[in-house]
Design a protein around this nucleic acid. Sequence first.
DNA 1: TATTGTTATACTCTATAACTATA
DNA 2: TATAGTTATAGAGTATAACAATA
Lengths: 165, 165
Amino acid sequence: MKHKPNTGPSSRRGVQRAGVLSVRMPDIDYGALDGLIGYSLRRAQIRIYQDFLDSLAPWSITPPRFSAMSIIHANSGLKLTTLAQAMGIARSGAVQVVNALEKLGYVQRMDSSKDKRAHALVLTAEGVKTLETITREITAHDARISVRMTAAEQSELRRLLDLLG
Amino acid sequence: MKHKPNTGPSSRRGVQRAGVLSVRMPDIDYGALDGLIGYSLRRAQIRIYQDFLDSLAPWSITPPRFSAMSIIHANSGLKLTTLAQAMGIARSGAVQVVNALEKLGYVQRMDSSKDKRAHALVLTAEGVKTLETITREITAHDARISVRMTAAEQSELRRLLDLLG
DNA sequence: TATTGTTATACTCTATAACTATA
DNA sequence: TATAGTTATAGAGTATAACAATA
């Protein structure tokens, strides 16, 4: 029994995409899932997620990587443990993200002057430039997903979302 | 260099939890991420996700498994390919979910009377009973996360979420 | 002792590709 | 030929645990 997969384009493998109810099929009864606020939220999140991923993909950036770059940019010189806490992930996970971003040339581990154990994380010049471009893309994405709402509705949505949880 | 991990409780390993901005740290500047509707949405989703996972955990149920059970229950006898489409995942992914649910005793693959290739997916009696209990838990979870909103606000939030994307 | 970064390991969820049995 | 289910493989993202270096 021979299997030789993975000969085609691997552009999208490994990226977590949909998972739950990405598309509502008209012939399918979703049972108790309908009517829950949590599922309305989840569905909306999934619905816009692909467009979000597509906006990041040209730079080999994933959502966690984008978050990391944004946080590093706005808090230049922070250490890895702080980054992990800010992202809400384990330190070992932050190592992976930073490794990937370093490999892409967007982030650099500088020696911390105060603590020989720690690194000072900074964006490279290319990282800054790329983040600016990506941020423009994401802002455009955000405008796209909001296009069916008035400005008042958008701000009301934000208010209600902050009430959740 | 020896490593002997995984001796502790493994209850939570492998479950995708936070990832992006789960906790907003007061001393951290999140940069351009603030002010985007997409990030308000993502943050809200992450904020309530742990409570959601905790509601499912006692039955070894994950969000995709809960979706699958709900869909199978409401569309008894459907085939695996239809389940995959309804969930928005690949057929191979649906196989994994069904395998796990079968192992837990919640789902059964019946022979399809019409098509010898296909299976008719059904919940077992225990699966039905468990789903009912879980559904009560999830409904309670939904009430918990909505507690700061009036009924009118909840229905407005649902309307606005459906406008997104 | 405690913290920082790292590595080893494991697991979920997703994907593509190829296979088999049927249609 | 096309479809249904399965298996093999791969990869992102998460986790816990243990480690060396430093505080």
